[in-house]
Design a protein around this nucleic acid. Structure first.
Lengths: 193, 193
DNA sequence: CAAATCTCTTGATTTAAATCAACGGGTTTT
DNA sequence: AAAACCCGTTGATTTAAATCAAGAGATTTG
């Protein structure tokens, strides 16, 4: 249990066996069926979820019932409405499972206690958030300065594994396009380039 | 010296007088004239800069010599090409001063040594990057799901002080518009709403 | 297994924003 | 103080992407 979680943790900050045991006590496993919610808009986000298996997404829904995909999380990734988690404000995102999934949950109290008592957990947290920040900065740069076609290419290069598992219209949303536009871009790319 | 830096630090993580002294040894002051570069694309970013006074921007320049503004930093904010700083890769951004500015620089070695030896510095770093991450997520959400007009309104609400000090065409770039489009949006907003 | 729901595609049309171009007022710069 | 540059505005035109609409396979669900 928690194999992948600790594999990823050790990649960032190597742990002794004892430290690993200590951290285990703060973790909670959770299984989620496809289409089940982990979090709904308006609820307070009470955990950070690490994906051991499966795939999730975070998204908002606007006035016209259009879904805006904010984030995907496959195996080895972490997902949460971090703003809600940190501030206690109601979540602005929904998070649900795109496939049957297995998660490792870190509750708010577990998170805070580990930050206070396990220095390596703070380092782990810092490295995680730093990585997420850099990925997001890249995403903004791409969105602001690239055409639709370039954005799609960039996405495919960066996340080929996501492209294979996730419906196309969600990818369209993630890169800020309508499904129709993405369909046409793909057609163009596949045919005469 | 370093008044604002420590004011902001203490807001996030309260320091004793001794800790403050200890940290001071790792800091370097730097003055920058308007239009001077702090960092040029291609150089390795060797510091994190905290703005005591003045205003800076980070931006890239594309094939058509168009500037893409990635970030503004006024008093109390931090600016850097974090990817370059952390990995040692050449910077993809330029950073220069929009006004005569006074900075506090933290070199890479100072940063790493403080992370190792001063737990409160790691906490400070974690909180900083977390805040930057949340701000960036908000920015992405706005860009992906809002019209040009909404993006501008959002910017004005969030950063009224930047809007007052920075040329309009840079704000246009920051929110992903051409200067002409922003000019027209402003006209529309100021007249008949 | 039939119905319902998803998902992607294609076509026609509209629309928001970019592009191209020119101008006038400011502000540096020399 | 003249020249050069920077900045915002406005107009005409183009273009990329959105919207509206319909249909055809897949897949899920009852």
């Amino acid at each position: 249990m928690y194999e992948l979680f600790f594999e990823e943790f050790n990649k960032k900050v190597p742990l002794t066996a004892e430290e690993q045991e200590q951290i285990k006590h703060y973790l909670t496993p959770k299984k989620l069926r496809r289409k089940q919610y982990l979090l709904q808009e308006g609820d307070v986000c009470k955990f950070i979820a690490f994906v051991e298996k499966g795939a999730l997404r975070a998204y908002s829904v606007d006035e016209n019932f259009t879904e805006n995909i904010i984030q995907f999380a496959l195996e080895g990734w972490t997902i949460s409405d971090l703003y809600s988690f940190l501030t206690g404000e109601p979540a602005v995102y929904n998070i649900d499972a795109l496939e049957d999934s297995e998660l490792v949950l870190i509750s708010k109290s577990a998170h805070e206690e580990m930050l206070q008592t396990i220095p390596k957990y703070e380092t782990y947290t810092r490295l995680n958030i730093t990585g997420a920040y850099l990925a997001m900065q890249r995403r903004i740069t791409t969105i602001i300065s690239s055409t639709a076609e370039e954005r799609y290419q960039d996405f495919i290069n960066l996340y080929p594994h996501i492209a294979q598992r996730v419906p196309q219209h969600m990818i369209a949303s993630y890169i800020g396009l309508t499904p129709e536009t993405l369909s046409r871009i793909r057609k163009k790319l596949s045919s005469g380039r």
